[in-house]
C-alpha cells in the first residue's frame, strides 16, 4: 500500500452512469507483482472500475494513473501497458482466432515475427491451436474466454485487468489460469482480478478490495486469511505449546480446545497434524477456518441486503 511509485493508482475516482453514481471517491493502489482481487455484489461498480483502469472509460472525477501517468491525458499508454479482458470476452465474430489476435496486435501497433511467435506460444499455452483457424462466432464460451485472455496477454503488458476470467473454464483450465496469473505476477506484472468465486481469490490474490455501492469498503492483504486452520484437540493445552510446533506461524485460542492457526509458508495441514501428534497432543480434527475474506464479504453483502430492504420499506 505504501509503495512510493505504484504501478496503478486510482485517486478519488468517481463515475456516474445513467444518472446514478456507480463508483464514488475510489482510492486504490496496485504495486508491481501484486494480484488484487476486486470483489463486490452485483452492481457494486466492479466492471466500471475495471473499465476505467483499462482506459476504456474515463472517470467523471479523479484520475487513474498508470506508472505515474494520468490515463486521461495519455490514453495511448493503454495501448502497450494494459491488457484487459472484459466480462464475457467481447470478440469480433467474423474473424478467426489467428485473425483476431493479429488484429488485436496491429491495433496496439505491434507487427513482425516476434509478435507471431508470441501469438503462437499463447495459442499453445492456452490450448487454442486446434481452434486457431475457426471463426470466433462458433467457439464455446470457454474458448472465447481463452481467446480474450490471449488478446490481453499478447503485448505482454505490465498491467492485466481481468473481469471474471474464469467464466466458462473447466476446473483444469481454471487451475491453468491461476498458474498463468501467478506467473505474470512473478514476472513483475500487476494483476487486477474481479470474480465472484472466493476460492479463486484466495488461491491467487495477494490483496483483496471489496466494493459496495461504488465505494471501497475493504482493502487488505490476503495473507492473514490464507492457510488458516482450526485445530481441535481432545484436551485443553496452553497456546504456547502449539505455537512451538514447527509448522505454526501464529496461533489464536478460540476456546478451551480449539485453536486458529496460521501456518508457515512451507507448511500444510498434514505437517501440522504430524507435528502435533509428535508433540504428544491428542488431535481431534483439523479444518479450514472460514476466512476473513468470506466473513468480510458476507458482512458487506448482508449490509447491502438490509439497506436495500430498508430503502424498499421507506419507499
Amino acid at each position: 500500500m505504501n509503495d512510493p511509485s505504484p504501478l496503478l493508482q486510482l485517486e478519488r475516482v468517481s463515475r456516474r452512469l445513467g444518472g446514478r453514481t456507480v463508483v464514488r471517491e475510489l482510492d486504490l493502489r496496485l504495486a508491481r507483482g501484486q494480484v488484487l482481487g476486486l470483489l463486490g455484489v452485483n452492481g457494486a461498480g466492479k466492471s466500471t472500475t475495471l473499465a476505467m483502469m483499462a482506459g476504456a472509460q474515463q472517470p467523471d472525477r479523479g484520475c487513474v494513473r498508470l506508472q505515474g501517468v494520468d490515463l486521461a491525458e495519455q490514453p495511448q499508454r493503454a495501448r502497450t501497458d494494459i491488457g484487459w479482458l472484459p466480462e464475457r470476452a467481447p470478440l469480433w465474430p467474423e474473424l478467426n482466432v489467428i485473425e483476431h489476435l493479429d488484429a488485436s496486435a496491429r491495433l496496439r501497433g505491434l507487427r513482425g515475427a516476434a509478435v507471431r511467435k508470441r501469438r503462437d506460444a499463447l495459442l499453445e499455452r492456452l490450448q487454442l491451436q486446434r481452434e486457431a483457424r475457426r471463426l470466433v462466432a462458433v467457439l464455446s464460451q470457454g474458448q472465447r474466454q481463452r481467446v480474450g485472455l490471449a488478446c490481453a496477454l499478447l503485448h505482454e503488458p505490465p498491467l492485466l485487468v481481468l473481469d471474471e476470467p474464469g467464466n466458462g473454464l473447466d476446473p483444469l483450465q481454471a487451475a491453468q489460469l491461476r498458474e498463468l496469473i501467478r506467473e505474470r505476477a512473478a514476472a513483475g506484472c500487476g494483476v487486477v482480478l474481479s470474480t465472484h468465486l472466493l476460492p479463486e481469490v484466495t488461491a491467487v490474490c495477494d490483496r483483496v478490495a471489496i466494493l459496495h455501492e461504488g465505494a471501497l469498503r475493504h482493502d487488505a492483504p490476503l495473507h492473514a486469511g490464507r492457510d488458516r486452520l482450526l485445530l481441535t484437540l481432545a484436551q485443553s493445552v496452553d497456546a504456547a505449546h502449539i505455537a512451538a510446533l514447527t509448522p505454526v506461524a501464529q496461533v489464536q485460542a478460540q476456546d478451551a480446545c480449539r485453536y486458529a492457526i496460521t501456518l508457515r509458508d512451507d507448511a500444510d495441514a498434514p505437517a501440522l497434524v504430524q507435528a502435533a501428534v509428535a508433540a504428544g497432543l491428542a488431535v481431534a480434527g483439523v479444518q479450514p477456518v472460514a476466512g476473513e475474506l468470506e466473513q468480510a464479504f458476507m458482512r458487506i453483502a448482508t449490509q447491502h441486503a438490509a439497506s436495500a430492504s430498508e430503502q424498499a420499506q421507506a419507499a
Partner: peptide, 14 residues
C-alpha cells in the same frame, strides 16, 4: 451491440 467498442478504446485507439 457486440460490446467490442471498449476493446478499441482500451487499445488506445482514438
Amino acid at each position: 451491440r457486440g460490446g467490442t467498442l471498449p476493446l478499441l478504446f482500451s487499445a488506445g485507439v482514438s
